[in-house]
Write a protein that binds this DNA or RNA. Structure first.
Lengths: 221, 221
DNA sequence: AATATAATTTAGTTTAACCTAAAAAAATAT
DNA sequence: ATATTTTTTTAGGTTAAACTAAATTATATT
């Protein structure tokens, strides 16, 4: 019945992001994601299990319940709406907003989020290309794949990023590899897995690391 | 050096609001304001004194330092900017925004507040008529007085409220006694201190309690 | 001035969220 | 199948911020 604490919300979000649908998530994985220790996770996970947000059995890892899912989605919704606000209205850059949204996502007020959503005109994607869940937790499926998996000689549009670190985002910005841009993959180097591509009629090379963290959507033409 | 905790910020704000410039503020007064107990205040006040945000001597009460003042003003600035945003942009009503702003004021990011201030076009007053400190802590002086102190047969404009409770604000809204409205005080009843006034060419009576919590600015005509 | 009342502080608990170190269980390798 | 390594849990400790109850200091009353 009580509202969740900020810590509880952060654990839930981590568990949601780590859950692949296969097996239970280990305490170590959660600890690593939250920069905390496995012992702390065990403790917290017991509390969340009592609140029916996840199922937990000793040594078996953790699986979020339906309630856990919808709760996590509500937090992610808030995070992404705030990110959209920060970039589109306040004109912060996409590499500055994550830490701020990490704080804003814990503000408690259903009405605030409804009003914010309306003010922003119900955006569907956040500044990093991630889908924003609606009030019911539904979000659009953005079928896209890693740029490192695209076959040479095909065209694609940049739709998102897998890594949200400021360093990575700033680098993309500098290279003009931003969301919405259309590129042509020319070839992949067998030696270092780097990728040669054409952007704005100019040829460029990007490292394996960058290609693995860029999400694209294949297009014809 | 560390950033302040939410609790520390709330104590500083309370101390700022209670300080009249005369004597030190007692732990009981602070406890009452924060719905906590005097013993808890004693503890916290020692910590804030170590951080040079206030001076404290046993049994002598507490006085904010210059550093304490500017820190409190920065928090109040954030609170009022967010209130302005919630009312003017998100269209929440003036009785709904206090609790939300109470959470938002603790978000840590100087750049966020600068950008928010610019986005709102540097407002000088919040939705309750309270002045918004600028980046340097300066705010406009709004010379105004309690409606209960105005002499009969004079005109005045409503400029602010002393009480920020939703119940009071909703009541004012219903009576159309909102900020900016011009009224004429007709007379004060000696028995119950109620006030008769004219608003929009209609005569009305308001209780002593309301008159004491409405701030007005006398005008000619 | 002595006493009663009120305000404040101290001492000792509680809770949430973290930690380390050691024990126990599970997974992996020989 | 047994031994080794890794993962997870337990046990016990720490810190911030609250609390209650008792002791102390200040203020007010007679």
């Amino acid at each position: 019945m009580h509202a969740l604490s900020i810590s509880e919300e952060n654990y839930l979000k981590a568990i949601f992001h780590l859950y692949t649908g296969e097996e239970g998530i280990g305490t170590n994985a959660i600890a690593h994601h939250l920069h905390t220790k496995a012992a702390s996770v065990t403790e917290m996970v017991k509390k969340l299990a009592e609140k029916k947000l996840l199922t937990y059995e000793k040594y078996q890892g953790v699986i979020p319940t339906r309630k856990g899912f919808t709760t996590a989605l509500a937090i992610i919704r808030k995070h992404r709406l705030w990110e959209y606000f920060l970039v589109e209205k306040l004109k912060l850059s996409w590499d500055e907003v994550h830490d701020i949204a990490e704080q804003l996502e814990h503000i408690k007020s259903d009405k605030l989020i409804e009003k914010l959503d309306r003010f922003l005109d119900f955006p569907k994607l956040d500044p990093h290309g991630d889908p924003i869940p609606d009030k019911a937790g539904k979000m659009c499926v953005t079928k896209c794949c890693c740029m490192s998996e695209i076959k040479p000689n095909s065209n694609a549009k940049i739709t998102g990023v897998k890594n949200h670190s400021p360093a990575f985002l700033k680098h993309l910005e500098k290279m003009h590899l931003t969301i919405g841009k259309t590129i042509k993959i020319v070839e992949r180097n067998d030696f270092d897995q780097s990728v040669q591509l054409v952007l704005n009629h100019e040829t460029m090379h990007i490292s394996k690391e960058i290609a693995e963290n860029l999400l694209v959507h294949k297009i014809k033409r």
